[in-house]
Amino acid sequence: MTVSKKIVLLGHFGVGKTSLVRRFVENTFSDNYKVTIGVHILKKEVILPENQVNLIIWDIEGNEDISATRSSYLMGSHGFIYVFDTTRRSTFEHLEHDLDHLRNHYNNVPVTVVGNKNDLITPAHLRENRPLFKRADFFTSARTGKNVELIFEDVTKKMMS
């Protein structure tokens, strides 16, 4: 059975949401940062053992304040991927608060939390920020492709369960 599901990538600007989507959909990566304004919408099929899922991926502009995200972008979402940048503290220090916001407003929508740019951090940095990083479901690198497929699979499984 084929179904369509809308997922939205959330998080601060510059955390690598677009890079993760490009890596997942096109298997490409660029070091040049181009800010996303508004929303880019892409589509990719994910095949699970029991289902074929058309993911409609909303790659929205980053926002430091999750409550200021345009609600029209989130309307009708089936899943969220919350991305933070492991190298920039400002993108994950309010993670718990942002996740609370999602729980309060989109209670039934599953969330996969992702720490991106994992290739740029040292073990010492990882240890130091462990208390803040503990909410992450995956650590990814859009540059190397590490765990990128997995996060989309994870959110798809959560949506389908």
Binding site: K6, G38, V39, S72, M75, G76
Partner: peptide
């Protein structure tokens, strides 16, 4: 034509709705 429309189509079920989206590529 574009996946954007695939996303919003399920939301057009109810009458009297006005959905507004800014800055869509």
């Amino acid at each position: 034509f574009h996946p954007f429309f695939e996303s919003i189509l399920p939301l057009t079920d109810r009458a009297g709705e006005h959905l507004s989206y800014s800055c869509v590529h």
